[in-house]
Nucleic acid binder design. Structure first.
Lengths: 154, 154
DNA sequence: CACGTTTTTTTGAATGACTAAAAATAACGA
DNA sequence: TCGTTATTTTTAGTCATTCAAAAAAACGTG
């Protein structure tokens, strides 16, 4: 999913059975450039190209593209919905508990380690979603620095 | 966590270093009676006992109890935050994609199968959260019934 | 057990994220 | 080029949740 050309993006949109429009192109490009973005951020980026775009259009496009399978929507606790272009592989995410930064995590432990709950209470399991929570490198640094300043001698 | 007595609930609240108040008791009891409830539902249930309680108080109590470790908050995508009394064990959840019903799922696959992502991108992993998505028994029935009615002969 | 401090709740209002509906506009097959 | 259908704009509105100030309640102390 390396920086796609306008043509590739257009093909993706048309290939999904959707009409090609400027907002769709801009949204798909924006999400491709920076992953795990929320609707507000996408809106800002789209605005740079298409100054007359409405926020509602961005919401509409994001759900259309998500429904069409071109985008994946994730909703980590405490954060607005975020979107990514990486679909079709069930990878997971790690979210920084301090700043909210999100990174992809490949599902390494076997293929579908968590896909089979012991007691599913009669549910038919469709998917398993794994979210890791932790401190991103930058926040680890900041926390370490803050601690050094706060307690000179403990 | 079988139907706790008022005394047990009071002890839990005090034991967590919190002042004992009627709203706190009522909220803790409500969540204990029915798990995975959202703030609105808790509010309704509390209202039955304490007719003058405000929604804001319920929100405040829910976060106080959560911060104190007496409740756990989960936020499945597309649903308002929900609360449960089962804390101190890292169990997971299965959510019905059709009606939103939630059930507990014990973490069976090993102890912490998903706790060790392959590439954590430099993050310090604190916890892993697993959410399964599927159809609850009731919705399986309804879907089956609807299909039978909709397409008599395919 | 009355008092005062501190915490909690009420009261009243506001925010952020997102959805709804109708009217205007743009895509694309014919 | 047109007409149908899909999409976007415009204008409102909803839901879940948070904020802030004032009133009330909890509990250690005297």
């Amino acid at each position: 999913m390396t920086v796609a050309t306008t043509e590739e993006l257009s093909d993706a949109i048309r290939g999904a059975g959707l009409r090609l429009t400027a907002p769709r192109l801009a949204v798909l490009r924006a999400v491709g450039e920076k992953s795990h973005v929320d609707a507000g951020t996408v809106f800002e980026r789209v605005l740079a190209d298409l100054p007359d775009t409405s926020v509602q259009a961005v919401y509409g496009v994001l759900s259309a593209l998500t429904d069409a399978g071109l985008l994946r929507r994730i909703e980590p606790a405490g954060s607005p919905a975020r979107y990514e272009r990486r679909v079709d592989d069930n990878h997971h995410h790690i979210v920084c508990t301090r700043c909210g930064a999100i990174n992809d995590v490949d599902c390494v432990v076997g293929h579908a380690p968590c896909l089979h709950p012991g007691n599913a209470s009669g549910y038919t399991v469709q998917t398993a979603e794994v979210t890791f929570w932790g401190l991103c490198p930058a926040c680890q640094d900041e926390v370490a620095r803050a601690e050094k300043t706060a307690e000179p001698v403990s």
